[in-house]
Design a protein around this nucleic acid. Structure first.
Length: 875
RNA sequence: GGGCGCGUAGCUCAGUGGAAGAGCACUCGCCUUACAAGCGAGGGGUCGCAGGUUCGAAACCUGCCGCGCCCACCA
């Protein structure tokens, strides 16, 4: 076969190794300029839409984004191939507090604060930073191969989205679901802003619990002694006999001389500590509630930076300086009854800067989440939106069913300014997007901006043009799937559900939800399952992997671990493995092209068993992969394709057809067409996960076309062929057994082996004798044998192997004895089962038959092993 | 404190009632004319522990042990 038959003259020559870099750049630009990713709202194809979870403009994409994007791209590319009008809408989030912090740090490096610039100049500066940082993210998305519609890129602060924000704010305000109130909120004394519950991280911190004697009868315990300056009552349980006599009396608050009442409140647990609680309504959420119930005054003793403002010796001290100072002062007066003792308790920290959060009484804007959260829960409960995997729906319910009102005002400059104006006489006017704000002396706009998540919550419809009735909104809302990590199920997904249902409530119920399915994945971890963190030094940059191994290898590695809802462990070695897989595909296609494989015309009517077998296997794979992707089981789809490509196609089919292709003739022609078809279909199936290499190869196989818009494979049940699969299974077993013999015997490659395969005739394998010989490199029968071993591969099939050197009879005997022991055990187990009347009676028939088959096989094996042992020469 | 989840090969993980699996790692043998980023053959697991349900359990139930995550206003 020096002359390769029928090599196509137009087939491109491929190098021996896949070089991703150049291919990726060329392919991506080609896709974009051809407009393959542009969605058309006016088409009559069925819609499929995904909005990207908008990354923060501040950051760069990490490997978690790469996972998130790979999953989305896989879903979108498959739907596109299936003929859907597929839209993947890209964009970014302005990330209010995070971005403002970054720019403030830059300013600090220049020795400036935002106040030095003033609001307008500062915001300008943030926009500049956004342009730089955002550009880098878009570049990363191109490198990943994201098939997003660049014409529809959005930003949470662009004009359209700002209008959406103002519109929904006005609607909620008019509907009574947004209100302004003085409440205890989480306050960051460093960022100088309110935070919502989800912007607070709790950690178990060591504190010290001290007990303070307020009077002979009144002793309270606290970890925050400094707040006593703001106490306006002591509370006891109404059921506590020890304290009954105190209710309604007063006590003098040490260090202040103020007299405060003792009240009875249900909140107090009589079994904890002394059963008496100091009440500081202005600095503790519980105490605030108690204060409300008893009409207690709220005494603020700290400013926004956490510095004591209460008159007296502690004024001007930071809260953490004031604590020991006050304890010391109390001790000096003999009022510390129990020494400090260590006490572990949960302390809130600002999720952005880690500063200890201070509960602070202040005037803020809130969303009344009650009705919104109820609707968000119901939509999942009744299946209008499905959460995948379903187990995670419990977490979702836990969140929406227990949601507190949402503090949405932030004392920041970067964000959507609250569209409320205050008049000189205390008027409050909420201004809609198409209305003029009130003008004239004394009118001013609220200084605060909205929580970033307020605009993120609108993302699935604000990006499609809402509040206008745009063609995009009509075509692509509700979006088909939301793909995101389970870690933001609560704060983002739940809020999109709330606002989507509210904004779209004029739609029929089933069309108001922002997405039909929420497909959740986990976070990316390192090869030991450790969370990636900068301090641990195990963070990987997806671009680094893309540079060294290619985008497809990076994507395949992540996709291969993407079991729904579970974390993904990755390491560089695994990316290498994926890179090797890309190369395997590359070389398989290269081999095919060198041997004249093609995709022209129908499949041949007459097919060899081998061709029938691979086509049958392909049908199973098409069915399986399709189901797996439909169910978001991307990891399983990858696994199915990996093994089909590597094991079935490369290791078996290609090796089996080599002699056929070399021999030429009609059989060769048929196999050329089949090989072309199998690769064509395989590359289509793999394309959603590994878009670059598959397109490069598919185009080589089908010049002038792209797999991006090629049709997604469909199962052809006429090609399923059980008989061919069974026949090939036998061939594979024969081949493997012969190879095992050679390997066990340590036969050198140059050492000649002869086999008589006559015994195969009974199983219809005789026709494949040339194939088997070619796969195990057997010579034709010869003479001059020095030793003979007989191996019965299956019960009915015998293979005689002759070697020209003496075989290791002892080794072969040991092997056969081992096999015999295994077969005996197997037979014993089967007999025991079949001898159990309960089993035969109750087990389903197919199961019983299976056991009978196993027993028959084991008995046949025993027979053949006995024969083989008998044929072994004496040692 | 409440809730959820996990414990299967050295590592990371599939496997939800009918013969213990994959990738990587490991051992041995091969530069076989698509690919050494490759080919062939192997070794390796009382499926956390103890009970229970069942003809049959890695899978279902109970308890225990060991991890992890989320939520949380007992001073």
């Amino acid at each position: 076969m020096t002359e390769t038959p029928q090599t196509r003259t137009d087939a491109p020559t491929l190098s021996a190794q896949y070089q991703p870099g150049e291919v990726e750049r060329r392919r991506y630009e080609g896709w974009v300029s051809a407009g393959h990713f542009r969605a058309d709202a006016s088409s009559d194809r069925p819609p499929f839409s995904i909005v990207i979870p908008p990354p923060n403009v501040t950051g760069s994409l990490h490997v978690g984004h790469a996972l998130d994007h790979t999953i989305q791209d896989t879903l979108v590319r498959r739907r596109r191939m299936q003929g859907y009008e597929a839209l993947w809408l890209p964009g970014m989030d302005h990330a209010g507090i995070a971005t403002q912090n970054v720019v403030e740090r830059q300013l600090a490096a220049e020795g400036l604060s935002r106040h030095d610039l003033g609001r307008e100049k500062f915001v300008e500066r943030v926009w500049q930073w956004k342009a730089e940082s955002g550009g880098a993210i878009l570049g990363q998305m191109r490198r990943l191969g994201d098939s997003v519609d660049w014409d529809r890129e959005r930003f949470t602060m662009d004009d359209g989205l700002s209008r959406a924000v103002q519109t929904i704010f006005k609607r909620l305000y008019d509907g009574g679901l947004i209100y302004r109130a003085e409440r205890i909120i989480n306050w960051c004394p460093r960022c100088l802003t309110a935070l919502s519950d989800i912007e607070v991280d709790h950690t178990e911190d060591d504190g010290e619990l001290v007990s303070i004697r307020y009077s002979d009868d009144v002793v309270v315990a606290t970890t925050r002694a400094e707040t006593m300056l703001g106490d306006t009552a002591v509370a006891v349980s109404p059921d506590d006999e020890r304290c009954k006599h105190l209710i309604g009396t007063e006590v003098e608050l040490p260090l202040t001389g103020r007299r405060i009442p003792i009240v009875a409140d249900e909140h107090v647990d009589p079994s904890f500590g002394t059963g008496m609680v100091k009440v500081t309504p202005a600095h503790d959420p519980n105490d605030f509630e108690i204060g409300q119930r008893h009409g207690l005054p709220s005494l603020t003793i700290m400013d926004e930076r956490g510095v004591i403002t209460a008159h007296g010796p502690f004024q001007g001290l930071d809260r953490f300086e004031a604590r020991p100072a006050i304890v010391a002062a109390l001790r000096a007066q003999g009022l510390i009854v129990a020494e400090k003792r260590p006490y572990v308790h949960a302390v809130g920290h600002c999720s952005r800067c880690k500063t200890t959060v201070e509960p602070r009484l202040s005037l803020q804007w809130f969303v009344n989440t009650g009705p919104l959260a109820k609707a968000a829960g119901d939509a999942v409960r009744d299946g209008r939106t499905r959460i995948e995997p379903p187990e995670l729906a419990k977490r979702y319910f836990g969140w929406v069913d227990n949601m507190h009102d949402w503090c949405i005002s932030r004392q920041l400059w970067w964000g959507h300014r609250i569209p409320v104006w205050y008049g000189p006489d205390g008027e409050v006017v909420c201004v809609g997007p198409d209305e003029q704000p009130p003008s004239g002396d004394g009118w001013r706009q609220d200084e605060d901006v909205l929580d970033t998540w307020f605009s993120s919550a609108l993302w699935p419809f604000s990006t499609l043009g809402w509040p206008d009735a745009t063609p995009d909104l009509a075509k692509f809302y509700p979006t088909s799937v939301l793909v995101t990590g389970y870690d933001i199920l609560f704060f983002w997904v739940a809020r999109m559900m709330m606002f989507g249902l509210y904004a779209m409530k004029e739609q029929p119920d089933s069309h108001a939800v922002p997405f039909r399915v929420v497909a959740l994945h986990g976070i990316v971890r390192d090869q030991h399952g450790k969370k990636m963190s900068k301090s641990f030094g195990n963070v990987v940059d997806p671009l680094d992997w893309i540079d060294r191994f290619g985008a497809d290898a990076t994507r395949f590695t992540l996709a291969r671990g993407a079991n729904p809802g579970s974390d993904v462990a990755v390491s560089e070695e695994w990316v290498q493995g994926s890179r090797n897989f890309c190369n395997k595909l590359w070389n398989a296609t290269r081999f095919a092209l060198m041997n004249g494989a093609h995709t022209e015309g129908e499949l041949p009517a007459t097919l060899s068993t081998v061709d029938k077998w691979i086509l049958s296997r392909l049908q199973h794979v098409v069915t399986e992969v399709d189901q797996q992707l439909e169910g978001f089981e991307i990891a399983k789809a990858c696994d199915t394709l990996y093994h089909f490509a590597w094991d079935d196609v490369c290791d078996w089919y290609v090796e089996l057809v080599k002699p056929v292709l070399a021999a030429g003739g009609e059989a060769g022609d048929a196999s050329r067409r089949v090989l072309g078809h199998v690769l064509d279909q395989l590359l289509r199936l793999l394309h959603p996960v590994m878009p670059f290499v598959t397109d490069e190869l598919w185009t080589a196989l089908t010049p002038g076309q792209t797999v991006v818009t090629a049709a997604w494979p469909v199962t052809d049940s006429a090609l399923v062929d059980d008989a061919a699969e069974a026949e090939l299974a036998t061939v594979q077993r024969v081949v493997t057994e012969i190879r095992r013999f050679r390997s066990d015997q340590g036969l050198r490659p140059g050492q000649r082996v002869t086999a008589r395969l006559g015994g195969l005739a009974g199983a219809g394998i005789a026709a494949h004798e040339p194939l088997i010989r070619s796969l195990v490199r057997l010579d034709e029968p010869g003479d001059g044998f020095a030793a003979t071993a007989t191996l019965a591969v299956t019960g009915a099939i015998g293979v005689e192997l002759d070697t020209r050197g003496a075989i290791d009879v002892a080794a072969e005997r040991a092997r056969l004895e081992k096999d015999r022991a295994a077969a005996q055990k197997e037979a014993g187990q089967c007999r025991a089962k079949l001898g159990n009347p309960a089993f035969v009676d109750k087990a389903p028939e197919p199961v019983v038959n299976k056991i009978k088959d196993r027993l028959a096989a084991a008995e046949a094996d025993l027979a053949r092993i006995a024969a083989a042992l008998g044929a072994l020469p004496a040692s």
